[in-house]
Amino acid sequence: MAEKRIGRQTIKIQNPVRIVSAAGIVGPKEGQGPLRHYFDEIIEDELWGEKSWEKAESKLQRETFAKALNKAGMSTGEVDYVIAGDLLNQCIASNFGLRESMIPFFGVFGACSTMAESMSLGSMIIDGGFADNVACLTSSHFCAAEKQFRFPLELGSQRPPTSQWTVTGSGCVMLSNKGTGPCITHVTTGKIIDMGIKDANNMGSAMAPAAADTIIGHFYDTGIAPESYDLIITGDLGRLGKNICDELLRRQGLEISDRYNDCGAMIFDMERQDIHCGGSGCGCSAVVLAGFIYQKMQKGELKNVLFVATGALLSPTSTQQGESIPCIAHAVSIRI
């Protein structure tokens, strides 16, 4: 086996890969949520001075990247790679948002798991000695996602109780082999898991088995005790998916309820904000990581975090053809 590979799904990062800076910008609704104090900027309206939702999402990525770069005290010339992706067709938010950056670019698609996917790849690139600094970022936009995946905003339809609200926001982390900040120690790459859920309005339930599978794979491969983490956090399962994931883990003998949470269940106020099962979208886990988790780790309030971003790998076409939803979850272990 390759020397850094410690199991079927997991690698151990051997050279230090640090998160030297993180930035997150969110939309107005997220800016009213319980995590509002952890974001770098809250935009006033979803268009943010642009002509379309898609352009606004590109601007989110561009500005978030600029903030992370600035916080790291780097110039664009020092960044060896940008790894980015989003939910829009052909990842246009990333492609257009970063086209002026003039940095070698990898576009990735992992649906809402993109943040952990880009961080996984970024860590490997740095650990392998191929780069000094890698920026990982992603975004989602409520209006752009609704337009592509669901119904027009002004259509008078009801959202079913299992539905989730796509987060408007972008999160970016700068990975580096120098400097200070929490280290990425392990990367557990998810497998595509499809448990037959077909309802695109119930993504949390579709993704929960993938999250549980990756979490179990992580502990099996690494032999790390679950108690050594202060926080195991999934990306955007929402209230229902979180509940199911927790139960799936318990049924397989892994009890983590006291240290388990979900970004989608945290980002909105469930009682006040009328978002049904919680937040979703690439931006959901990205802004919670870049804001809440990163700041808590900087202050030492969190020391060991397992970040498990979850993605539903569906398209409007596959939904219309009656396909079930294949899902994925990628985990990165972050320690100070």
Binding site: P160, M195, G196, I197, L240, I244
Partner: peptide, 27 residues
């Protein structure tokens, strides 16, 4: 995952766990 649920069992399990629409209120 396959150890504890087949796909059919999982779909049924989710249906039973999912919050229901408040049908009377909606009607």
């Amino acid at each position: 995952m396959k150890a504890i649920f087949t796909k059919d069992e999982y779909v049924r399990y989710v249906e039973q766990k999912a919050p229901k629409s408040k049908v009377m209120k909606n009607i």
